[in-house]
């Protein structure tokens, strides 16, 4: 039973990380109908920035609390900046192009960013400094759930709450929902759609940066290629829950995380990714609109 609970907890942690990345996909898709292929790379850059800042600070001997705060803030700033720039360079000029064009541009951006980090930094796996200490009060349950799992779950829950409040009640959040519903109409009622799109990319990148920071300190090592597979899986989660739907992305992520965790625990860890992709293929065959997504009925 302990093993089951342990797998359940690690599945939840995985799911939480996927959710943080999947939200970026789903929000962007909801607004401009584009699969932002480079989103996984934004997550990777968030993790890398966090790694660089945290290591520099720890070398210069700053206290842990200061390191955590500065690292978190700089990862968020730089990820958002990259997300914003990627949108401006690779997607904005293609707003009215055929569907395939921005998708290929996004793939190009993903390859570009990966190799940029590879060339500017290194291709080796780098040890990520320990940012989350072992809490004393977690000791009785430490064999089931670790301190970092707890931090990930709590941080994710808070982020989700803030995001919901932001989308529901702020001016910008309302503008986002309006733009997602009908871009032309949003323009007509005076919403600056370009700014809303930029804001969406920034918010998505911010969440991805949080995810990057959390997973890097959880796993303890990073590499330039981590964004690709994480991005694909988060996208799988977003599709699973119904792309464009924010609660759907969270639900899909948790299901994917749990599936992977149980598959790894009870079957074999070698086929973890195969399970994820098979789940994606199956979902798309039987329910292309996802669990909570709206069916897209084409009208002529």
């Amino acid at each position: 039973m302990d093993y089951f609970i342990e797998l359940f907890c690690s599945g939840l942690t995985r799911g939480a990380i996927y959710a943080l990345i999947a939200l970026g996909y789903t929000m962007v898709y909801g607004i401009i109908g584009l699969i932002n292929f480079a989103h996984g790379e934004i997550y990777m850059i968030g993790a890398f920035t966090a790694f660089i800042v945290a290591t520099v600070l720890s070398i210069y001997g700053f206290p842990l609390a200061a390191i955590v705060v500065v690292t978190g803030i700089s990862a968020a700033i730089w990820s958002s900046a990259y997300g914003y720039t990627v949108e401006k360079i690779a997607y904005k000029p293609l707003r009215n192009a055929p569907r395939l064009t921005p998708l290929i541009s996004a793939i190009g951006m993903s390859i570009l960013l990966q190799n940029y980090v590879l060339l500017a930094q290194t291709s080796d796996f780098l040890p990520f400094p320990e940012l989350i200490p072992e809490f004393a009060f977690m000791e009785p349950v430490a064999h089931i759930i670790g301190s970092s799992d707890l931090v990930i779950l709590v941080t994710t829950a808070i982020s989700m709450l803030l995001l919901t409040l932001f989308i529901k009640f702020t001016r910008l959040g309302k503008a986002m929902r309006a733009t997602a519903q009908d871009k032309t109409m949003a323009l007509l009622v005076g919403i600056n759609v370009d700014r809303v799109i930029s804001a969406t990319f920034i918010v998505g990148s911010l969440l991805a940066a949080i995810g990057g920071l959390l997973i890097a300190s959880h796993i303890g090592q990073i590499n330039f290629a981590i964004g690709f597979i994480a991005g694909i899986k988060a996208f799988t989660a977003a599709v699973l829950g119904g792309i464009g739907s924010i609660p759907g992305a969270v639900l899909g992520s948790l299901i994917l995380g749990l599936t992977e965790s149980f598959a790894t625990g009870y079957v074999s860890s070698d086929y973890e990714d195969v399970f994820a992709f098979s789940l994606l293929v199956l979902i798309l065959i039987f329910k292309p609109s996802g669990l909570l997504g709206r069916a897209n009925i084409g009208k002529v």
């Binding site: 000029p93 190009g108 990966q114 060339l119």
Partner: peptide
């Protein structure tokens, strides 16, 4: 050759923007 994939990415993006 190490810049090959970097150039690939850049070319893909540039092609889509300037000469799709």
């Amino acid at each position: 050759s190490e810049y090959r994939m970097l150039a690939f990415g850049a070319i893909l993006v540039a092609m889509m923007i300037f000469k799709p």
